[in-house]
Amino acid sequence: MNPQHMPLFCDIELAERIERAEAQLITKGSEAAHRRKGDGTGFLKPMSGGVAAFAEDDSPLNKVAGIGFGGVPDAAALDEIEHAFADRGAPVLVELAHLADPAIGALLTERGYRLTSYENVLGLPLAGEYARVEPDGIDVRPSGDEEFERWLEVVVDGFAHPDTQGVPSHEEFPYEAVAAAVRDLVSAAGMRRYSALRDGTVVGGASFRTAEGVAQLTGAATAPGHRRRGVQTALLTARLADAAASGCDIAVITTQPGSKSQENAQRQGFHFLYTRAVLMKQS
Rank of each mutant, 00 (worst) to 15 (best):
L8M: 14
A181E: 05
T254F: 11
P162V: 10
A131C: 05
V154N: 08
S30E: 02
D87Q: 15
R276N: 15
A23N: 03
T254L: 03
S117D: 14
S117N: 15
T201L: 13
S117Q: 12
L122V: 07
G29W: 12
M191R: 09
E172G: 05
H161N: 14
Q266F: 09
Q216S: 13
D39N: 15
I18W: 09
V133H: 07
A277K: 14
V94H: 11
E31M: 05
G29L: 05
M47I: 15
D87F: 11
V214G: 04
T201M: 12
Y130C: 02
R198N: 09
V72P: 06
G123R: 10
Y194C: 01
L240W: 07
L273K: 14
Q24Y: 00
A97Q: 04
V140T: 06
R111G: 08
A75D: 15
V203G: 07
E95I: 00
G42S: 00
E146R: 01
E263I: 10
T233D: 11
L14D: 11
Q24H: 08
F85R: 06
R35K: 11
R228A: 12
S283G: 15
P257T: 05
D136M: 06
A90T: 02
A75F: 01
S283W: 15
G50F: 12
S48N: 10
A221R: 03
P91I: 09
L197Y: 13
E22Y: 07
G258A: 06
R229M: 13
E95H: 06
R132E: 14
G42C: 01
P3I: 08
E16Q: 12
L124F: 14
A84N: 00
G70W: 07
E19K: 01
A21P: 00
V140S: 03
G42P: 00
R20P: 07
F173C: 00
D242F: 12
E134R: 10
R111H: 10
S59E: 09
E134Y: 03
R20D: 05
I138K: 01
D157A: 13
A84P: 03
P102Q: 12
A251N: 10
L236Q: 12
V94G: 10
Q262T: 07
Q232C: 00
A75G: 13
T116R: 14
T41I: 03
R227Q: 14
Q4W: 01
Q24P: 01
V92F: 14
T116G: 01
A243R: 04
F9W: 04
H98W: 10
M280E: 15
A244L: 00
L14T: 04
I12N: 00
L240Y: 08
